[in-house]
Structures are given as C-alpha cells and as structure tokens.
Design a protein around this nucleic acid. Structure first.
Lengths: 148, 148
DNA sequence: TATCACGATACTTCATAAGTTACATGATCG
DNA sequence: CGATCATGTAACTTATGAAGTATCGTGATA
C-alpha cells in the first residue's frame, strides 16, 4: 500500500513558510517538496479552508501563513487534510450472522481505536512551533559540527 | 487507500477451523470468506510456514490447525503475514540536509512508533481462544433471543 | 492589456491488495 | 496404473486512492 505523505509534506511546508518573507508560490513549494504545483494547491486547499493559510492571486501572489505556528498542532493539520485513514489494516466480511467474524472485527477495531486515540492525542499535543524549534536546534548542531 | 484485510480474514478462518472436523479445503474457505481459493492459499502460506496450520494435498486434503487456539495470539498471525504496514500515513522527503523535514518526520515517527507499540502489545495479549469464546457467547445470546 | 499566480477539471501514473487463469505436483481412491 | 482431488506456483488482471500532469478559467497587479 502506498502511504499517504500529505501530513508530512504539509507540516514541512508550513514550518518553512514561517521564515519565508512574503508569499510562497505553489511552484516554489512544489520544487522544495519535489512535486507538482497542482498537487500543492490541491493539498493546501484544505488548510486554507480551515484558516491556517491564505492564498492570493496575481502578481506577488502565493501562500502565506494565516496563524502563528504556536496555534497549530499536528492534529489540526491532520483534520484539515480530511482526517484520512490512519491504518493500513482493515476489517473484512459483511456477514452479520457470523459471530466469529464479528468477534474478530470487534477485537481488531478496539485495538485500533485505542492506538488511534493515543496517536491523535499525541498529534494534538505537538505544535508546529515546537517542531520548528527542534529543527532550529538541530540546524545549530549541524553548524557547530561543521566547524570541527 | 485500500485497507489490508488479511489479518481479519485469517483470524476468522483459524477460529472456524477449530470446530471443523478434518480438513478444510481452500475452496470451502474461499466460499466462506467470499473470495478466491488462490488468495486463500497465498495468504495461508505464511501461517503454514510459521507452523500455525498444516496443508495436505490429494483426496481428503486441505488445511488443519497445527496448534491450539490458546497458543496463538493476534500478534503471531500479524507476524506470520509478514508484519505488513500498520499505518496508512508515511513520511515524505529524502533531503538529509533539511532539518525541518527531519524534525517533522522524527516527530511523526515517534508518535506512530508509540501507537504501534500499544497496538502490537494489545495484539500480543489476545489469543484466538479468547476471540472464539467471545463469539460463542454472542452466539448463545443470539440463540436465546431467537427463542423469544 | 499583458503577466502572474491560484482555482478547477480531467486525465494519467503508480503501488499494492485482491482477484483470476492456468498448469504443475503430489496424494488418494478405485 | 490412471483418474481425481487438492495444494503450490507463476503470471496476469482488477480495483482503489495518492500522486502526477495538462489545460483553461479567474482575479490581481504592474
């Protein structure tokens, strides 16, 4: 199964936009992500609808952050992307009379629900500002390494 | 994304095999699951290699449980299927010099690792015998209902 | 008015679980 | 032995959804 990389990509973009003066065009973002500007617009559309970024047309247009990174969590972006499927595992069968099938699926669903709750709770606790800070620190570390 | 239903299906089959006297052919299993016998053989191959079932050719051949359900956990079957991807979410980017990308992906990976640990721990604690017992109980409940 | 950048549509590509076809191999029955 | 049954395997097709692409419309700016 091909993994959904939209969350990872959007987080990456949003953090870069903080340092970016003015607007970032879909083309520029696409180049940074190694993808296509249409894909960028399509994916960013959800973030715009939820008020995390704004888009402007025409000369000097492009994308800008609409809220500080302190106020955006990973969970916010996950939801803005439409809260896509978290798990690659699914439940099979559609026979409502088979109690075995039902017991299996209930058990799997419970385990997955529990894991999803944990995962989304963690997503909700991490802000993009914290990720940006972590990246800045790592950057300094690298810079320091280069001096030796 | 199309979910992977192999775990759900194999658990279902194994529990039914407990009550099944003698062998169950791939055809019979496929009919029960609403799928194709070749898919059954392909998927059961991993379980056979790990010693959870045996297969016999020729007249009267088919599949039989090789171990009691008490000794098989959901995790065992997950592993026997090759421990396929749990999450539909993936990490993007391959630029080792971008600390932002790295920070984003490390954070996502940590959250997913934590959730995966929880999920697999739960899988490891549930035996197929327990699922079978739950199904039998539900079956009785249904039977009782039918009497009134 | 020309250009720039997003918005939107319609399509193609890609990856992979799932489904299908076909045939080989081995075991059992008569 | 030979027919039949069932698994083993290989090769191919289908289904699904993220991702990629081409094209044109729309609005904003110089």
């Amino acid at each position: 199964m091909r993994p959904d990389t939209r969350l990872s990509r959007m987080l990456h973009v949003l953090i870069h936009m903080q340092h970016h003066e003015g607007t970032a065009t879909s083309d520029a973002i696409a180049t940074m992500l190694g993808t296509n500007p249409v894909v960028v617009r399509r994916t960013m559309a959800g973030l715009r609808d939820q008020g995390y970024v704004r888009s402007e047309k025409g000369h000097g247009g492009g994308w800008v952050l609409a809220r500080p990174l302190e106020e955006i969590t990973l969970l916010d972006i996950h939801k803005a992307l439409g809260a896509p499927q978290l798990f690659a595992i699914g439940l099979a069968g559609d026979n409502p009379n088979c109690t075995v099938e039902e017991a299996v699926n209930v058990s799997l669903a419970e385990a997955m629900d529990e894991a999803a709750t944990i995962l989304l709770a963690k997503f909700g606790k991490v802000t993009l500002a914290e990720l940006a800070a972590g990246a800045a620190k790592a950057s300094k570390g690298k810079l320091a390494m280069e001096h030796f």
